[in-house]
């Protein structure tokens, strides 16, 4: 299912931050993880992902480093403290939003905002 751009714009950054909370990742890894873990719902192409990563970096929510030890140089991204705080805030807001949508019958009943229900 393709998510509308406006919704994606809101969901993309916390999704990326959440993925990075598990440890640093490079661009392709993030694309793969997003697609796999969300059953393709939040799959995004490079044209969306990299500008988003650059934005997050400009806001000091993520930091990047170049690793030249592999077969090719790769840029790895990791969460900053600010990014962690931002993720915590976003998580709370998404849960509140999910609960609200659930009470309206938009989100499925029985599911919980904290994870699979």
């Amino acid at each position: 299912m393709k998510i509308e751009r406006e919704l994606m714009r809101g969901a993309g950054p916390p999704a990326v931050l959440q993925l990075l909370s598990g440890g640093e990742k490079y661009g392709y890894e993030l694309v793969e993880a997003l697609s796999r873990q969300t059953d393709g719902v939040l799959a995004m192409g490079q044209s969306t992902l990299y500008p988003m990563l650059y934005n997050l970096e400009a806001k000091n929510l993520v930091k990047s480093r170049i690793d030249k030890s592999g077969p090719r140089p790769r840029r790895y991204y990791r969460l900053t403290r600010k990014g962690e705080r931002k993720l915590a805030t976003d998580t709370m807001q998404w849960r509140a939003l999910f609960d609200a949508m659930q009470s309206l019958g938009i989100a499925p009943q029985g599911a919980t905002a904290g994870g699979a229900g």
Binding site: A43, S47, P51, Y54
Partner: peptide, 20 residues
């Protein structure tokens, strides 16, 4: 095919890079 629109990509990359 999964890359997306090149012109849009260039525009978004330019904008986000400038922010940094």
């Amino acid at each position: 095919a999964s890359f997306g629109d090149t012109a849009n990509a260039a525009r978004l990359i330019r904008r986000s890079k400038k922010r940094g």
